[in-house]
Amino acid sequence: MLRKFFLLALVAVSVSLVASQAAQAKVEKDVVYGTANGEKLLADVYSPDEESNEPRPVVLLIHGGGWRGGSKNAGGVTAIGNGLAQRGFVAVSINYRLVKPAGDGKIANQWPAAIDDCRQAVRWIRENAEKLSVNATKIGAAGDSAGGHLVSLLGTTDVAKEGETSTRVQAVVNIYGPGDLTKDWTKYDIDANVAVQGMIDNFLGKGNVENQKAASPTLHVDDKSANFLILQGGKDQLVPPSQVEALHEALQNAGCQSELVIYENDGHGFGAGTAIQALVKTVAFFEHQLKAAVPD
């Protein structure tokens, strides 16, 4: 899913943050956070350059790309990672298994591969909290598009059994990520309705109602769900605003904190001015929710 303008603007904002903040970020590339089918799952870890005597809050970053593309090195992810590290957070940007052709008409890495990897990343952060110098009780997650969908699942579900490491995060920023994949996208009055339905079918298996329900964060909201900030373009031609409005309403009805911001003149990929606002709002949300130590 296209996010060009949003990403370019975030890169520009990141450069500005680096120039204006006394605290700098350091990045450890290609850290192995798990394996899946013999494949290494890799993360980039963004940290403040200065040491801290206290464990820091941490935010997991999940890229978009229609569950079939994208990278932990995407410009927008890099900008958010650097911006958070400059404000006293540790940020962990991950790659996860992407849907791809497997020959003979088959599709590899369908549901639940992507969310399994995201949950493994949450476990890895918690189980390595001391090494990462983070607070395992203060984990946020942010993502755009398909990444917004996946972080929303991390905020509304927990697959851990008693005695196992929790896979739920405490605060979520969903940037135009869908909430209910049981809906028929071809019925939406948007330009890319057929194309998006095709992505969903490849991701979940065409007509697989069980997977559609399991992969729909809106349907899993309860009073244990995370607090949310949802950012959406009013003219989005890939994920209609009604998708996030329903998620926001479900969260509020469950007694969870949820703020929905709709930028009426933006689509799926914010313009430069909106992207700046979105980045500032994202960092402020995590500072409030996770109580980051903010450098002078």
Rank of each mutant, 00 (worst) to 15 (best):
G83A: 15
Q277R: 14
A22D: 12
L98P: 02
F286S: 07
P217I: 06
G198L: 03
A74W: 10
G83R: 06
E210I: 05
L247A: 02
K161Y: 07
I94Y: 03
A292E: 05
G147D: 01
E164R: 09
S145K: 00
V32Y: 09
P295I: 12
G81Y: 07
V261W: 12
K4A: 08
Q86W: 00
E162P: 10
L132K: 00
G163E: 05
E249L: 11
V59S: 05
A146L: 03
N202M: 11
L247D: 06
L98C: 04
H149K: 05
P57Q: 08
N135F: 02
L247K: 09
K26H: 05
P57L: 04
K40Q: 15
L60H: 04
E162A: 14
V173D: 01
Q232I: 09
V239S: 10
V173A: 07
K29R: 15
V221D: 04
V99A: 00
A43N: 10
L17K: 08
L238G: 00
Q212S: 06
Q257G: 11
G179K: 01
V99T: 12
L132F: 04
Y263W: 14
V122W: 00
G234K: 11
V92Q: 02
N109Y: 04
A275V: 07
N53S: 13
L238T: 02
